[in-house]
Design a protein around this nucleic acid. Sequence first.
DNA 1: GGCAGTCTCTGGAACGGTCCAAAGAAGGGC
DNA 2: GCCCTTCTTTGGACCGTTCCAGAGACTGCC
Lengths: 335, 335
Amino acid sequence: MSAPTIRDVAARAGVSKSLVSLVLRGADGVREDKRRAVLAAVEELGYQPNAAARSLSERRTRTVGVLLNDMRNPWFVELLDGLNRRLYDAGLRMLLADGHLNRHLGEDLAHTFTELHVDGLIAVGTLPDPGVLRRAAGRVPTVVASAREPVLPAVDIVANDDVIGARLATEHLIGLGHRDIAHIAGQGAVGELRRRSFEATMRAHGLADSAVVEQGDLTEEGGYRATVRLLSRVHRPTAVFAANDMTCVGALSAAEETGLTVPRDLSLVGYDNTYLSRLRHLWLTTVDNASEEVGRRAAQRLLERIAEPGRAAAVDLVTPFLEVRGTTGPPPSGG
Amino acid sequence: MSAPTIRDVAARAGVSKSLVSLVLRGADGVREDKRRAVLAAVEELGYQPNAAARSLSERRTRTVGVLLNDMRNPWFVELLDGLNRRLYDAGLRMLLADGHLNRHLGEDLAHTFTELHVDGLIAVGTLPDPGVLRRAAGRVPTVVASAREPVLPAVDIVANDDVIGARLATEHLIGLGHRDIAHIAGQGAVGELRRRSFEATMRAHGLADSAVVEQGDLTEEGGYRATVRLLSRVHRPTAVFAANDMTCVGALSAAEETGLTVPRDLSLVGYDNTYLSRLRHLWLTTVDNASEEVGRRAAQRLLERIAEPGRAAAVDLVTPFLEVRGTTGPPPSGG
DNA sequence: GGCAGTCTCTGGAACGGTCCAAAGAAGGGC
DNA sequence: GCCCTTCTTTGGACCGTTCCAGAGACTGCC
């Protein structure tokens, strides 16, 4: 009843278990007739190697764990695609776990992964508890993708360059003729980088005085509320740069509810180029954070760190680009 | 350098490895001073049990694999939540893999999971290749969640009741006074159930002649195109019931592009109650497919099947309900 | 025929846990 | 003091692989 083992295969093929092992690992120096006999036995018995036994013996799992911060906000799918492609080529499998799902259960997912003795760990986005990552990084090669924190001794960081991204968005609006531009800020290190770059860009164009910042929380609701606040000001901005697409969607709702037409009365720019922004009905101008490339490079960094665990931590920034769609245009008064 | 093992802990605590094992598994009949010594040693060494060794010895992994069909369409997040909660209580961990990500790599993820010797497998949504599931189900207890296929001997199915859901949506529109109602159909078994129920409901209300069906493909693009076709008919429908939210968003775009105001000129109903439909800017009337409950029950079924692998396959349907939001209203001519 | 050198193949020792039968310690009754 | 029980603790077998040293078989050369 229970699954066949390598010994069953060996018995069936009339060889030793060692030879079966050799055949399955593709070693050369095995006579063709024996190789065939082994493969036939494998086929007949439906044999599948036991990953646990293998990893116990090999002392590695050929598996990397990927920690997601929240699957509800699916900006990371392309990142995973990039990651997976590169890791797969290197013979590594990818297992996912969502921190948000398990948070309320009080479980430390990184812990699950270190128990599994994964060969590496990738944290995607900013995790709620930096301690988790610090502890995990002490045990297993770790890379942070698409976040700028936590900064830890042996943990590489791969992300898009938020300074450039925010500048692209802001200069796009300035280029269209906007002067009164607001920013709805995000949270954490990434939020701060985007906000500062927005401010710096406005300053560089002599628009420091007409730059406004409202705090958001990266959710639609937060974007909506922040925009309501912005639009109730005496001096209304003619354009809003939102810290992410979700926020931007909230801003869009608030604008239309106030009777403004986007982009005629108000221009909006998001960030991340999620599939949300690509929905025809939303069609947001946004900054593409080069997710897939971030994923590929994160995988690369992880492979390097697995090969050489002691190397110094690196920060690897990918250049984002602007994706102009339907929510931006010249300001109402003609600039 | 390498991770401490149970023997290191035993040596440090001055006891045998067996005793360490007993303490860690919470056995009683261990003297308090020894228990403390062991726990102290564990703490000092930062010992973590090796999951591979444990599962090899215990002959189970306390892990279930979850196969997702496509993370890009995140209707399943709440389902995972329900699943995870129940499985966690039963001492099982959940590992995710996305079939879509790996498809082009030609990898059989179910294979990865069976190699890992997971204790169970849950397929979420309809998987591209039914053969994958058939093979996997021969090795490990398997449950399909939120799909109606493939139907296999020892595989339970848990899903929302599409017949009821489609009827709710259709009757909602009829109740508002609509008579010319179109359906944009989905694919596979689920698509067929929804379409047939739509048709049956129309028939039951004597509206068989004014029921129209256009084929979609569950994507925004498909919904858009189908709606363009619908709206270019001589006799335009006043309401559209879309097979899922994504399709409905496409329909929304097509409607507005045609100059129609939703819901004044055209009513729209989606299906799944994804967070998309909850975005203020879309605010779709939709059928809630009770995802979380489906997840909980799927977990329950899996636990039962793990306990008793031979039991007959069951189909467990959860009752969906209507979520009325902003895209439905009375027909233009007043009904 | 003997011997070195290849080429194939094999048995047994890991890997790090769990489990179990049995050993050892402690306590009670005579 | 001895035997019997009960309570704790232990050594060793085992889970299913990989890895390695070395065993056999065969070849070619002197």
